[in-house]
Structure formats: C-alpha cells, structure tokens
Design a protein around this nucleic acid. Structure first.
Length: 348
DNA sequence: GATACGTGGCA
DNA sequence: TTGCCAAGTAT
C-alpha cells in the first residue's frame, strides 16, 4: 500500500531525521548502508522507557567497550551492571547479557532476522522485536511505542484510554506501515512523536500530517491519548548502612537478581517498608549523620535514613563484602545508592 | 489486565 | 514541590 500520508512522512523524515549514534540516516540508508543489528538492538533496549538524551553516552560507552555481540556475551556480569548503573530498569541489563549469550550459544552469533525470532529472546518484547526487524532487517513489522500510540490516537481521534486502546492503535498503525522503507518509516513516526506530536503543546503548525489529523480538526490534540488514572505512590522508609574500613574499603552488598535494583551493588540494610527497620550488617559504633535520601521509584517514594561507621581491619560483616577503595566507583551504584554515598562521603 | 520495575527533565 | 512523562518487558 502506498498511502499518501506515508510518502509525506518519509519526505519529512528525509529532511528532518535526527542524527543519533546508532542510526543510519535516510541518505546513507538510501545509498545502501545497512544498520548493524547489534547496535540497533542495544539502542532499542536502552531506549525502553528512557529518553534519547539519557541513552547517548551509555550507548557510546557500551559500543566502545563491547563493540559486537560476541564481546558483550563474554563480558563479566558485574562489569555490565556497573556500566548500566544510573540508567534504570536494571532487568534490562540482566536480560541484555542473557540475550547476547543466547545469540552466541543458540543462534551462531547472529541475531534472528525476523520479528518472530527476535521475540523469543530475553528482554525483547513486541516493540523491540518489531523495531529491530524493521530497522535492521527491512521487515514491514508494525512498530508501536509510546510515540506511535500518541500519534495514532490523534491522527484517528481514538478516545479509548490507554492501555485498553493498545490493540486498536496497533491495528491503525498496521494499516499505515509500508512494505518499503519500513525501518525509516518506524523511525519517522517516532521522530514525529518526539519532536512535533509531543505529549504537551504539539506543534501542529509544522506537522506533515496536520491536514489529515482528526484530533486537530476537532481541537482535541492536547487531550489525546487519554490514559487510565494511575495509583498514588505510597511512602516507604528504610535505612542504609555505610561502613568504611580503616584501609578505605567500603562495605557493599550485591542485591539478588530478582526485584528492585536486582543484580546491582548497594549499601546493606533491611527491606524498605512502612517504617524504617534497623538491620546493621556488622557490629560497630553506628552514627546517624542526620540526613536522609529522598528518592522516587516507579511505584513508591522512599525516605532512606543513614548510618555510618568506621571499622577496624578485623571487622567481620554479617552481610556483604568489603570492596577495596581502589575498586570502588560511585558511578557503578544505582542512583539511590549513589545519593546515599554523596551524603556521607564528606563525613566518613 | 494489573503490577513491578529507575531515572532525570520539565511545567 | 509535585506529578507527569520517555523508543517496554516480564510475570
């Protein structure tokens, strides 16, 4: 199907595509340059629920350190988790390694080239499978992310709230998805959503689809897509124990793979709950610095109290391990733990 | 279908 | 300051 709207959008993309470290621009793509599936996959995983601005430097560091899927598959878990620290949604990093190793062990070192094949890999869901298939392998897969949902809901004036509207929006997106240039088309809709058809104050005046947009015709573009109300975030409390040995080593623990901050380093402490629970990881003269970390996760606010202690070389922790000062990098901590470090570093 | 899962930017 | 939001996936 050669829809006039698709031709208009691709022409807009040819002029306005954003340059990104993982992207092959429309001019190079037309000249026969093919994107590297590894880079496309890595960028798409990093971009899940994450802004382009936040991803750029992480992507560059990953590519510099692990230039292909084989290198990543051979990486140490702790190095990948440390490199991911600060980007959030750490299950993505654990699944990234699982996926790289599955590609190496079960697929001869090459990514599956179809949406269906990609979908079977860890950390690759409907969106990422379609995006990689379309961008890296020219499959006319239907790519539906938050941008596409917003654009389709406006273009066709869909008033059903998300997430219930997802099947309807996917069907509408499927009607527009072209057999030619499916990768450029997918990136074009996402660029449109990111730069023009934005959540607030969409720039309809310069939109290549403004003449076709039902929501704009009805003056409803800023009211769509509708979304179901979200639950309020409860406030949880906890205590982080920061101990430093006389040789400068820090007492840290590796969090279990499942659950919040899974697989990441952190300061020992009890689970966070309705009230702060005391759970010192070793016997020491714990001092309360009188500061707290405030942090908001996806589904709760956290008030994290602090305890600090200086301990001798013979200290034996009940939990965790002492990481030598030379190996300790605050940047390898998830943000909430790095905030705790920032508050106590001057006092210990 | 509902819930768990991070973080930083912006109005 | 608070709430919303960003190229979702797993269970």
């Amino acid at each position: 199907m050669r829809d006039g709207r698709v031709i208009e959008l691709l022409a807009w993309y040819d002029r306005h595509a954003r340059a990104m470290p993982w992207r092959v621009g429309p001019a190079d793509r037309a000249a026969g340059v093919h994107p590297d599936p590894y880079r496309v996959w890595l960028s798409e995983v990093m971009l899940q629920q994450t802004t382009v601005a936040a991803v750029r430097d992480y992507f560059r560091r990953f590519i510099e350190r692990w230039p292909d899927v084989s290198a990543l598959a051979s990486a140490r878990d702790e190095d990948v988790m440390a490199a991911w620290a600060g980007l959030g949604y750490y299950a993505r990093a654990r699944n990234l390694l699982k996926c790289a190793r599955a590609v190496r062990d079960d697929h001869g070192g090459r990514f599956p080239t179809s949406r269906a094949g990609l979908l079977s890999l860890p950390g690759i869901g409907p969106y990422t499978a379609a995006a990689v298939a379309a961008i890296a392998f020219d499959e006319p897969a239907v790519v539906v992310d938050g941008n596409v949902e917003r654009v389709m809901s406006r273009l066709f004036l869909v008033e059903t709230p998300l997430p219930a509207a997802k099947p309807e929006l996917t069907a509408l997106a499927a009607r527009l998805t072209p057999d030619e240039r499916p990768g450029d088309y997918a990136q074009a809709v996402m660029d449109l959503g990111a730069t023009i058809c934005t959540p607030r104050s969409p720039a309809c005046g310069i939109c290549p689809w403004n003449a076709d947009c039902a929501a704009r015709a009805a003056g409803m573009q800023s009211d769509l897509p509708r979304k179901s109300a979200k639950a309020a975030k409860p406030l949880r409390h906890g205590i982080a124990y920061v101990a430093r040995r006389s040789d400068g080593a820090w007492l840290l623990e590796r969090r279990p793979d499942k659950g919040l901050l899974g697989g990441m380093l952190g300061w020992p402490g009890a689970d966070w709950g309705a009230a702060p629970a005391e759970a010192p990881p070793l016997e020491a003269d714990w001092r309360d610095p009188g500061a707290e970390v405030r942090h908001t996760f996806t589904h709760f606010h956290l008030s994290l109290g602090l305890r600090v202690a200086k301990v001798d070389m013979d200290a034996e922790p009940l939990r965790g391990f002492f990481m030598p000062q030379a190996e300790f990098r605050p940047a390898a901590l998830p943000t909430v733990m790095r905030k705790a470090y920032d508050l106590v570093r001057a006092t210990i």
